[in-house]
Write a protein that binds this DNA or RNA. Structure first.
Lengths: 152, 152
DNA sequence: TTTATTGCAAAGCTTTTGCAGGATA
DNA sequence: TATCCTGCAAAAGCTTTGCAATAAA
């Protein structure tokens, strides 16, 4: 299993190492984003964090996500128009996204690192991040779709 | 060079094959999107198409892009928040995007097809499309950035 | 002639911004 | 204590939608 859980201490020093302050809002947001496998969007993070920090604002969530991107602790996944989701796994990997239910699954592939290096060399490009998305249907939604077709 | 130019006749039959009408606006939009290597966004396509079709609307551009996606003639690239760009190459490939100047370059890689198949098999997923983006700096912007650093 | 499409304007949404009050180091 | 951060509300920006007029088949 790919896992990116981090302790509060690690999170706090990550913030401070680049001059950011480790506020309670930021730590709470990190707990949800960095330890989650559900690839939440900003609204979802906001809803979750409000359960423990009722006064937190959506603006703070967005600002914190920007900091986490800068610290390279999360990868932004632009899943579709107007929907950014966040993945705590920042090493090259595949994100399989179901067009029907929206579930996002991480899949490792050891070849991706070399593929990126080769492309960068060929194009004389200096890579700093990536987003590898495969769109389609998860097995559950595929089954639902197939059975719906049989009914017709 | 990767090339996806298509004749008007091909475009017209692609529309009609699925019951869409081949209007002059749609054909003009296709000429710009399907024969371009610049990965334009909707506004850019609108600006270009208006040179020959001054009355075309941005809404029509968006509606046509949705049809082209449905026909699998273009791939939508969600480059960053609020910026969708369009690529006429729909087979799996890499898009190298410069964070500084925004240029998008296509790079082929024959391994991607198998990588997608393997991930799909492992996750029991039915793939229908993909978007493989590498973010970073193109060689020109890298050089500019390096020289700016030297000055300091 | 029927049906789909256009173009306009308004609405919708996510995300960003400005700023006064407040927390952190 | 100086600086950064929060939360609010407004603004911004891209995209979508509703509808009457128009064009395609």
């Amino acid at each position: 299993m790919m896992n990116s859980s981090r302790s509060d201490a690690e999170i706090i020093s990550a913030f401070r190492s680049k001059g950011f302050k480790a506020t309670s809002q930021r730590i709470a947001i990190c707990r949800h984003v960095l330890c989650s496998e559900e690839h939440p969007n900003a609204q979802r993070i906001y809803d979750e964090v409000r359960r423990t920090h009722p006064t937190v604002s959506l603006a703070t969530v967005y600002k914190t996500l920007a900091v986490l991107k800068e610290l390279n602790l999360i990868q932004e996944l632009l899943v579709k128009q107007g929907e950014a989701r966040y993945d705590p796994i920042v090493v090259p990997h595949l994100n399989l996204i179901c067009n029907r239910c929206g579930v996002v699954r991480d899949v490792k592939d050891g070849n991706l690192k070399i593929i990126i290096e080769n492309a960068a060399k060929l194009a004389r490009f200096s890579p700093s991040g990536q987003s590898f998305i495969i769109y389609g249907l998860c097995n559950i939604c595929k089954a639902i779709k197939d059975s719906a077709r049989d009914v017709k």
